[in-house]
Design a protein around this nucleic acid. Structure first.
Lengths: 228, 228
DNA sequence: GGACCATTTTAGGTGTACCTAAATATTTAG
DNA sequence: CTAAATATTTAGGTACACCTAAAATGGTCC
């Protein structure tokens, strides 16, 4: 029986790689099955299955030891960054060229990222003038897979009142995204932050009158950096 | 045992409906399994399977009697036209906005047509100024599914030398499409047609020096109308 | 009008990506 | 250090869209 080779160019594989990349964080730590199951909305058993497949490929996309979590191989990271590049270029394109509302770009990009060709990628990149950031403030990986490191930290890490610049905003919760947008909280904006009593954050964008209160978990969706 | 309901919102179903629509022609004649198998590059047995499923749905997408061929139901036709609209809007968009070479728009549109949202459709339609024709000269179905009738005929039907206007060109053969394009044979262009000896067609676009010889089957890909 | 041929359908299988339930390993808590 | 709780894997199934091989049907030709 020859080892039968499986097809790893599927939407599903894309999504697993993206999730592992996202959950691994900047240090690319090992990611647990449960965390993946949670993120992908899939039963833990399905995760095990897929990870075994990804690890057993002729060119493995992940390093996986049973019960020890998983992390991307070089090939897997390359693929993940390629998809992330598609995603962020698409978001930028939908926002800039097609005039999408900011809170809708993510869902559309999430579907299309798996199906656009290299040519499509190239054409929108050119049309947008080779952008470095998407409309949420996230860095767009370069063609060669290089991506600059984050110098920002989550708003939820702040412990004292202060003024900051909005670095980026997670695109995963469209309701929150819209709420932030309505209050002028968008990448690059100057932000006054007050810690309220019970671990809530009170924000006001520069030039705005209305403040906005955010829960700790919602504050995790906003990344900030120091002014300057 | 309750009748278990199946999911009919798949790329595959889209492709079957498109194929039935295309093969049925303007009269929407019944289409045979073999013709579909051929067009979709799928075994005849698979066709039977899918047609049974499409016909058995709570809202049937086709009318199907065993061994008598198939045709679209009202719901099926609506879906087919929706996808055709996506396809042609995408082609126009790729050509006009992203500057794709004409012979590449089809393949990309064919993949993306299944995944774009209503919003995407609306936005590109608006951006293009609500176009009525795609870059191959094909009519883009309106949102309500209306599509004007063809007044053109295939070049392959011509029996005597003459001058015509190019109406449209099939996008299915990208090599031919490119060849025609290079010779200036594009929708709206005035065309001189000479019948050569063995059922071949010799074409020259107005203002061009070089002629082009086309086989009968290739000539079937070009539709023409009378001058005026 | 019956035999042959092409078309179509039935029957039974494959690979992908899921699922649930049960078994097993690991971590944590007392 | 062991027992309970938690995390993970194995085992066995499902739906989808294909496949091949074999059976059934239908049209045509003498």
């Amino acid at each position: 029986m020859t080892t039968r080779r499986v097809n790893l160019n599927t939407e599903s594989v894309d999504n697993y790689l993206k999730a592992i990349f996202a959950l691994g964080g900047p240090e690319e730590e090992r990611v647990s099955s449960t965390a993946l199951a949670d993120r992908l909305g899939v039963a833990p058993a399905s995760i095990t299955n897929m990870l075994q497949k990804l690890a057993a490929a002729p060119v493995p996309l992940v390093e996986y030891e049973s019960r020890r979590g998983v992390r991307l191989s070089t090939a897997g990271r390359r693929r993940a960054l390629e998809i992330l590049r598609h995603h962020r270029l698409l978001e930028t394109f939908l926002y800039e060229v097609l005039g999408y509302p900011i809170e809708e770009v993510h869902a559309e990009a999430e579907r299309l990222e798996h199906f656009i060709s290299e040519r499509f990628e190239e054409r929108i990149d050119a049309k947008l003038g080779r952008p470095k950031f998407d409309p949420h403030g996230h860095c767009i990986p370069a063609l060669n897979g290089k991506m600059s490191k984050q110098t920002s930290r989550p708003l939820s890490d702040i412990e004292e009142d202060g003024e900051f610049v909005v670095d980026s905003i997670s695109d995963r919760d469209s309701v929150l995204l819209k709420r932030l947008n309505v209050h002028g909280i968008t990448p690059g904006v100057r932000l006054r932050v007050l810690m309220s009593s019970r671990g809530e954050f009170v924000l006001r964008a520069s030039g705005r009158f209305k403040s906005l209160q955010l829960s700790l978990s919602d504050a995790g969706a906003v990344r900030i950096r120091s002014i300057g």
